[in-house]
């Protein structure tokens, strides 16, 4: 079996005395889209923080391409191809779209190439290139965040609640782009509270509740047991 690009083994993490992750096991095969689903507060975003090095696990290990990355810093992981799009977009509201994108050239990719990449995935950003990011709609800001992530040439893309606060049509559009990104060979781990759209483009899915992964499988399989699992039946 091929070595997965990301593998979590018994990962535990806590905020002070409150343990949020209680032994998470998850694999993301190379080039696959994996949806990590679960209710609010299940620990999904915390898991992404651990994987991206923003938070240290208290037990367990995170392996990337068969290598333990315990103790790696976020910037080190970013340098080797791990990119996170955090919940809430985190665009610079006072900078224009083009300035937000140009910032990515500091990661080493020339600015024209950054802009080409971004505008080819999201033509709407080209129309808005001189607009302040803070004045754009939520969907457009999410496009900008996603475009900015793509400009770092990611090998593993972590997406946290892409659909948060967005209209269903926009969410569909964004996930179409995620599918397009995955086709180019990028592995994607999507954390989502709203399962339907994420399952549509996923190769595999996992459900997390109470800090543990309680079900994994193909999207159809997960879709059929989703309600039971989310309501505690499989816990």
């Amino acid at each position: 079996m091929a070595v997965p690009i990301l593998e979590a083994v018994g990962v535990r993490a806590a905020y002070g005395r409150i343990e949020v992750l209680r032994g998470v096991d998850l694999r993301v095969p190379k080039g696959a889209v994996v949806a990590l689903l679960g209710p609010n507060g299940a620990g999904k975003s915390t898991f992404l923080k651990v994987v991206s090095g923003q938070m240290e696990q208290t037990a367990g290990d995170v392996h990337m391409a068969g290598v333990s990355v315990r103790g790696a810093k976020p910037e080190e992981l970013a340098r080797v191809g791990l990119t996170t799009v955090p919940e809430g977009r985190s665009v610079f509201p006072n900078l224009s779209v083009e300035e937000n994108l140009t910032l990515m050239s500091y990661a080493g990719v020339p600015a024209p190439q950054v802009l080409d990449t971004a505008y080819s995935y999201f033509p709407r950003l080209h129309e808005r290139r001189y607009q302040l990011a803070g004045t754009m709609s939520g969907g457009e800001q999410q496009m900008l965040a996603l475009a900015r992530a793509l400009c770092s040439d990611p090998a593993l893309l972590l997406l946290d609640e892409l659909s948060m606060g967005l209209a269903p049509l926009i969410v569909e559009e964004l996930y179409d782009t995620v599918a397009q990104i995955a086709q180019s060979g990028v592995s994607v781990l999507v954390v989502e509270q709203f399962a339907r759209t994420a399952l549509r483009i996923s190769d595999y899915a996992a459900v997390m509740t109470g800090g543990r992964v309680v079900a994994t499988g193909e999207p159809e399989e997960i879709r059929s047991i989703m309600a039971d699992v989310m309501l505690g039946g499989a816990a």
Binding site: V3, I5, V9, K30, D61, H63, M64, A65, G66, V67, S68, V69, R70, G71, A72, E76, L77, R79, V80, G81, L82, D153, A155, L156
Partner: peptide, 17 residues
């Protein structure tokens, strides 16, 4: 070999795997 699962530690270049 610090990883208890017998894997090496380090930072692989994910773009080249």
């Amino acid at each position: 070999a610090s990883c208890p699962h017998g894997l090496p530690s380090g930072l692989p270049d994910l773009r080249k795997v």
